[in-house]
């Protein structure tokens, strides 16, 4: 599904290149649950941003679903966002001015999904995540865990084939974090959604089935998690 070839990312400053990523080559298949781990500043988030096409690599090629997406125009990229990729953020990034219901609805509006279909999908998601009662609340009226649930629900609303999560439990207490990670695992196993997460926590990494260890911009280790 994802094919990264010799990805490099550096910033040139007065002729001196400071590397963030070097020679990253890897393949991620449909249905995998990959955790990207490493110390602060290792380049984890940059790698995830490149996979999510939020940043462009300086060098190397990136194929998504067999298509070269290294340099993609805005229109095509947005098509991918609408149909294939869902984002989950550490700081949730719900839109403060929208209710829970409207936050989940927003990607469906961009995807131009009919109103009855929209209603049923949102009802389904609210139901599944047990947040029906909260649908008319605004983000700042929810706890962090609940906000992240809404964030995931929003990412799932467009029925993506892959979810990119940047430290999804970084701001949460451990009980809430476990709940979120279990949810990811379930989504991965039952719905076959590919998940790539960046995490600091060894424990969170064990929920997935593969771990990429990064240090100083280089993939040091690529291990399979055996349950």
């Amino acid at each position: 599904m994802i094919q990264l070839n010799n990805i490099e990312k550096y910033y040139a400053n007065k002729g001196v290149k400071s590397y963030i990523l070097r020679h990253v080559t890897t393949t991620i298949k449909q249905g995998e649950f990959v955790s990207i781990m490493g110390p602060s500043g290792a380049g984890k988030s940059t790698l995830l941003n490149i996979i999510g096409m939020l940043e462009e690599p300086t060098y190397g090629t990136y194929e998504f679903l067999g298509e070269d997406v290294t340099t993609l125009n805005e229109r095509k990229r947005i098509e991918l966002y609408r149909n294939h990729i869902g984002f989950v953020f550490q700081a949730y990034h719900l839109i403060d001015e929208m209710t829970v219901y409207e936050n989940i609805e927003a990607p469906l509006l961009y995807k131009k999904i009919g109103s009855s279909e929209r209603a049923s999908r949102i009802a389904d998601l609210l139901d599944r995540f047990n947040i029906v009662a909260k649908k008319d609340l605004f983000p700042n009226q929810l706890s962090g865990g609940q906000q992240q649930l809404v964030g995931i629900a929003r990412a799932l609303a467009a029925q993506p084939s892959i979810i990119l999560a940047d430290e999804p439990t970084g701001n949460l207490q451990s009980a809430q974090a476990d709940e979120i990670m279990n949810l990811f695992k379930k989504l991965n196993q039952e719905d076959g959604i590919t998940i790539i997460q960046v995490t600091h926590s060894e424990k969170n990494a064990t929920y997935g089935n593969r771990i990429l260890h990064i240090a100083d911009g280089v993939v040091k280790d690529d291990v399979k998690v055996i349950v």
């Binding site: 999510g52 939020l54 805005e74 229109r75 947005i78 098509e79 966002y81 609408r82 990729i85 984002f87 990034h93 719900l94 839109i95 403060d96 001015e97 927003a106 990607p107 961009y110 995807k111 929003r154 467009a158």
Partner: peptide, 16 residues
């Protein structure tokens, strides 16, 4: 700006 970023990754075009 945050709202703009989120909307963009949800699939909003610049024109929208």
């Amino acid at each position: 700006s945050k709202e703009v970023g989120v909307r963009k990754v949800m699939g909003s075009r610049r024109k929208q």
